[in-house]
Design a protein around this nucleic acid. Structure first.
Lengths: 205, 205
DNA sequence: CAACAAGTATACAGACCTGTCTATTCCATT
DNA sequence: AATGGAATAGACAGGTCTGTATACTTGTTG
């Protein structure tokens, strides 16, 4: 089998498949899933249609690949950022919301791709919707681990509360981008502080 | 001008226009906006295509009409329910989440139509997106009034926190419908209790 | 009865969509 | 030089979408 990768092996766009997923990800995020046609993806990626259908069975498969890439990247960036921002478990629970603030400040912020996917593919049995649910589950699992490290008496309960705050901040920033909405992350962080104090006790370790 | 309304005047479906908006509302909510074609709406509503385009300039206008109806109905039901559930301002702030729990329990719950609209029409200048933002603004305004009646020192801040909790519960219930997700409203209510106590002081009036 | 407003049925234009097919080119390895 | 895998361009099928045009029916009002 010949090496068909481009001159820089292991570079992010080393294969046609990667180019497709990469550009599909951007377009689906910015424009939506139904609103982004296959032809638009091909045009932006600079790839022929037959190449797409050699790598993916259908548009839905491409969407799933884009969501998988997004999930992997987002959670990696999320966890690395949190762990860099604070060293104590309690500090990290608060840092969740600093991460959100930075994300929202990106001028290309277009909401959470997984929430958007759930909205467009409402059927819960749809693999796309299922992928979105799995992403949220994994995020909550990580937050739950942080809560456990902070010795919360009921880590799952605290994690559930904090995740609800996170999702709420994401949604309000997406729906109401202007107004005083830039501060949704800050508001959520203040609320989180109260909830964390309530769960862990005021004296922070 | 002749009275072309059906025999029962002021009934919910007294005009063809009402039939269109009513059925469009249901379909857009259950299936999504892009995924619901005009023809499907016409079929379900039992109305001819020309009639639709006599009443609405475009599909987007129909979507806007459906969203306006939804906003009016949802907020009415929301406010009436809250005010029935509790008599004290503090109790009403908590009752927000009982309303959500009932909403989520509906087997046809398909998330918040306005969040979904924002996802499908990402451009903030799009009138559909703007209508969604306005809806959220009005909801928050109402919550803010409740917070003021409860004598919160900073009603806007408390309302912002509670609204973030509400949106988070809505989104998580939509994205992760199964699992232990039915309890998102209950988790949010517990968090709200802590936040309300923190804002108002423990002794409830 | 005549006029008119509202709605209907149906066909159609034109665009766009996903997915398939074919014939060709490129290029690395053998 | 020959082989064969990967990608290409481009046409195309078959469907769906929005929106328009036309001709017809119905029922009410004056």
């Amino acid at each position: 089998m010949p090496d068909t990768r481009n001159p820089i092996p292991d570079s992010p766009l080393s294969t046609k498949r990667d180019q497709l997923v990469e550009n599909a990800l951007k377009l689906f995020e910015q424009e939506g899933f139904h609103a982004t046609g296959i032809d638009r993806v091909l045009e932006v990626a600079g790839v022929a249609k037959m190449t797409l259908y050699k790598h993916f069975k259908s548009k839905d498969e491409l969407i799933l690949a884009a969501l998988r890439l997004r999930d992997e990247r987002w959670r990696n960036s999320f966890m690395r950022s949190i762990e860099k921002k604070a060293k104590t478990p309690r500090g990290r629970l608060l840092a969740l919301f600093d991460f959100l603030a930075e994300w929202f400040a990106d001028c290309k912020f277009a909401g959470c791709m997984f929430i958007n996917a759930s909205a467009e593919y409402a059927d819960h049995d749809n693999p796309i919707h299922a992928a979105a649910a799995e992403h949220k589950r994994l995020v909550e699992k990580y937050v739950c681990e942080l809560a456990a490290q902070a010795h919360a008496p009921d880590p799952a309960a605290l994690a559930a509360q904090l995740c609800i705050l996170m999702e709420g901040a994401i949604v309000l920033t997406q729906v109401c981008p202007s107004e005083n909405r830039g501060c949704a992350a800050a508001v959520a962080k203040q609320a989180a502080e109260v909830l964390i104090n309530d769960a862990l006790g005021e004296q922070a370790p």
